[in-house]
Design a binder for these strands. Sequence first.
DNA 1: CCGATGATGCGCT
DNA 2: GCGCATCATCGGG
Length: 215
Amino acid sequence: MNPIENPQVLPASFFTGRPTTTIAADLLGKLLLYNSPAGQVGGYIVEAEAYLGTLDPGAHAFAGRHGKANDPLYGAPGTVYIYAIRGFYAFDVVTQAADEPQGILIRAIQPAIGEDLMLRNRPRGGFELTSGPGKLMQAFGIHDTAMNYQPLTESNLKICRDFAKTPATIQQGERIGVRIGKDWQDNFRYVVKGNPYVSKIRKRETDLENDGWLN
DNA sequence: CCGATGATGCGCT
DNA sequence: GCGCATCATCGGG
């Protein structure tokens, strides 16, 4: 796929007015773009996790936690929230109204645009290129939090309204790397079933025929 | 191939 | 100093 010049992007209203879990599932198949200084990169979202704010023990805003690092989470729906984790960076899109600190972690994409540039940014072959939140940001060449607070509608990071693919089956399960009490039922990870870029997928679970898409 | 383990940089949530 | 919404490597099967 060639670079896209002026894509229609998802409006802020996409990221509020319904549960964050629903929005996370709805993001699967959407085209994520980044107009980086070196060129455009992007791909289809194949994995996303919902974080449900102050009542969610796995969320950065659990129990009202609010500091400099997670302040973007308290912004308007569709705001960029990038945070550092163990020397890597990860990208969330903020959901729900301001001061309702929910968000969705974009965990993996299937490369579609600028794959050569992504490979230079992150020289790992095969599905390792973008099959995790830190890997994805490396492939995009994002190594800081400079885009924090930007609305996706006005950022070099964009999620397209058009060009979307349709998952054949959306699979739901436990979030990755979240250690919380056993009482909390964690079922907030959404993936395109069988897509080989989904993180931690087992080889035999992959659908290399259609990559888990209908189209 | 798959699960376990240690390295890692950043912000103190 | 420590905790962490991770990653790459190692070794058993």
